[in-house]
Design a protein around this nucleic acid. Structure first.
Lengths: 357, 357
DNA sequence: TCCGATTACTAACACGAGTAAGTACGAGGA
DNA sequence: TCCTCGTACTTACTCGTGTTAGTAATCGGA
């Protein structure tokens, strides 16, 4: 109303600043800052006057400016390998984020979901205002690690290949793969199909990254004990999208083949559920005709008919540890810890003795 | 190495700034900025020199400083009513965030999860560096709306009571409640139990907020058509935590009562699943002895045995619309749209004719 | 040879705050 | 009266960047 258009500090359409409040209360901008951050440094009378002025103008300190000054954002960044929509459809991530959430609650921090920018995780890094990153589903090339190092931003790797001097959280996927396949072999199966997620090079067990690679390594160890390998007759590997329908379609294809498997090892519960769907539609009893096992022990595993044998993985603990490590790294307390989490075979009803030949 | 300790611009432990790069390349700081943001304004030769210097020093523009200058963060804020860990355990939110995720992808934005700070959504607002908020699960008192208005931050309300001049997305929970109960009544049920989430005042249908309140209103309309009400004999309302075990325990209690219900109306699928568990453990066939219906049509609803009758709610669309509205509001294009989304009754196998008395 | 016009760059201000160092003032002690 | 000393406040610098306005050098044209 009384603002001349050239008046610089006044609310010219935008939000009021501390200068506006200072002017209105007849004090310096510093006094306004003190009123908010260090009330002891100012008389209660002027403090009240300042607060009243702030209230009338609708002033509120700008979070960005504070962050810039303090060099602290109060947010953890979660660097994702896929778009948010894809990630959230995967129950794995819901559990993982739950774990991080516990840390956020304890520390009073927020969580920023950072999907790739123009299909690149690397490009997403420079645009995130965070105190540090939790990096998950890292691509093989590792440009991201170099970039994060360049930037001197604290970060934690999850389910990635080990990198020196970087805190990391891993699961014993090798042992998981081993336990799962050994369980199947002990039941007498010899015609085994591996149902795996994501696309990779066409040579199995070569070029797979992260957890998948390690699960395969464990599987191969178990197979070797029975003088089998991933390339033995009867052992096949099929790739499909990590969805229920992906597992469904792949299983239909498998069972239509020459010598269909008697055991399907899915490296994801959700794909295993799809496999169960397919076998049901083919009227093949599980586990009498075909055994099915999954991985992760997500809640679905207990609801299927029959209930799913799987590897329980402490996903939530993984998130929590990653959060703890990151917070420690941000505080500079980090000793570059590396934690290996253990899974366990959960035998339910979907795996049984191989049918007589 | 060659930095004197009083040298102000040099990397004194921290990250290098554009001044450092400028000094190293023998140009002004402005030139460095141009090299990154407007290469046309600078000769290619010096641009290369600047980039080389930046590379050697490991320089990278500070996202916070950019945001402050541009008055734009490139992130949407999701203001949550509970801690991240609690929210992520609820499949509802996973779907909702999926919807927002589509918008984030299209706009190239990130998503900030803002849980309450010291049990207060209101206190979380000032600490978030976002371009706008999606507000969900708002408490009844509405302090948050006033605060967001004060701050002049764009925001969108989801599943809240209507507020004038604020974009909002709602579902027709009233119709959902009506359809669900009408379905049950048409099957001849008269002894009905409502299984609802969260704690409220002890008088049912009074003081409930948001969606729950509207679902009850719809339910009451349907009941009235049969000359029944929420306080009729045979109609009970039970509150329990919104979890599988919450539904389980509550149902056990219900069935142990004098005149146990023949229909259980859960206002959440996950509680309905718990109810099914309980009935199974009591050897009560569903729907022959007791019908069970849920709400939301989450993926679980199709996996249960029997498959669950429920109200399909377009949760993902809700998130997507909220995102769209928020982006429009941030751009200043907003006409304060209000969208009402429609659900639909999905009849599966868990609801059937009431047993003969 | 002198005049615009273009190119290539810089100085100076802005974004919105926090904070060390400095100043004016009144009270209290010698 | 003079000299502390504490209180209450301000001046001036800082965080790291974007960008307008302005200047020195170069070029083409007459």
């Amino acid at each position: 109303m009384s603002n001349s258009p050239t008046d610089p500090g006044s609310a010219r359409g935008g939000r009021p600043t501390s200068s506006d409040v200072a002017q209105r209360a007849g004090v310096s901008r510093t006094a306004v800052s003190f009123a908010y951050n260090d009330p002891a440094k100012i008389s209660t009378a002027t403090r009240d006057r300042i607060m009243a002025a702030a209230d009338e103008l609708g002033y509120t300190p700008d979070p960005l400016a504070r962050m810039l000054k303090h060099r602290k954002t109060g947010t953890l960044g979660l660097l994702l390998p896929q778009d948010i929509a894809q990630v959230m459809q995967n129950p794995y991530y819901a559990q993982f984020i739950t774990g991080i959430g516990h840390v956020c609650e304890r520390e009073g921090m927020t969580l920023l979901l950072c999907p790739p920018l123009r299909n690149s995780m690397l490009k997403a890094i420079p645009y995130a205002a965070v105190d540090g990153f939790i990096v998950t589903g890292l691509e093989a090339d590792r440009g991201e690690v170099a970039e994060l190092r360049r930037r001197k931003i604290p970060f934690v790797l999850v389910d990635s290949e080990p990198v020196t001097d970087v805190p990391s959280v891993e699961a014993d996927d090798d042992k998981g793969g081993y336990d799962l396949v050994r369980h199947i072999l002990e039941l007498g199966h010899t015609r085994i199909a591996f149902l795996i997620f994501e696309s990779g090079p066409d040579q199995p067990n070569l070029g797979y990254r992260g957890p998948l690679k390690r699960r395969f390594a464990g599987a191969e160890r178990a197979l070797a004990e029975q003088d089998l390998s991933l390339t033995s007759a009867g052992v096949v590997t099929v790739e499909a999208p990590c969805t229920r329908s992906g597992g469904y379609t792949a299983t239909l294809d498998l069972m239509a083949g020459q010598a269909p498997p008697t055991a399907i090892v899915a490296f994801s519960d959700i794909m295993a559920v799809g496999a169960l769907d397919a076998l049901k539609s083919l009227n093949l009893p599980v586990p009498a005709a075909v055994s099915v096992v999954g991985y992760d022990d997500q809640p679905e595993a207990e609801w299927t008919q029959p209930r799913l044998t799987t590897i329980r993985q402490p996903i939530e603990a993984k998130g929590r540890l990653a959060g703890d490590f990151l917070v420690a790294a941000i505080r500079g307390e980090s000793q570059h810890p590396r934690q290996l989490l253990h899974g366990a075979l959960v035998v339910r009803d979907s795996s049984g003795q191989a049918p007589p030949t």
